[in-house]
Amino acid sequence: MADDDPVNGTSDENSEKSQQKKQAKYDSGAADLEKVTDYAEEKEISNQNVANAISAIGDRRNQAALEKQAREKELLKVSIRKEDVDLIVKEMEISRPKAERTLRENHGNVVNALTSLTN
């Protein structure tokens, strides 16, 4: 268990608690709210098959991650011009990453990218 960890179980909840304490005077519901941040021991489950299940999940997850990576890669392959990104950022007042992404999604066509952003 995490007991020897320097910053343990309740650490993050404590700061919240002291904050709620000062409200306790006025709120009758504060007692219930207090419980929200109480530390409770995690319930354990025991099973021998956990390992098998875990490995299956790990594999699937990797599959999903791979697919996503491939998609991102495909997008990254699209070449875009810096001036186009600048124009989009200036005209539409959006962040650079978003401008770049929209441009890539539109295969680098700045007119289409701008049009889609006006929708």
């Binding site: 995690e42 489950i45 790990g58 997850r61």
Partner: peptide, 18 residues
């Protein structure tokens, strides 16, 4: 949450969170 599940597969919250 995946890392947490891998580290603590016997905990209920690990599964639920994932």
């Amino acid at each position: 949450r995946y890392q947490l599940l891998m580290l603590r597969p016997t905990q209920r919250a690990s599964w639920i969170g994932y």
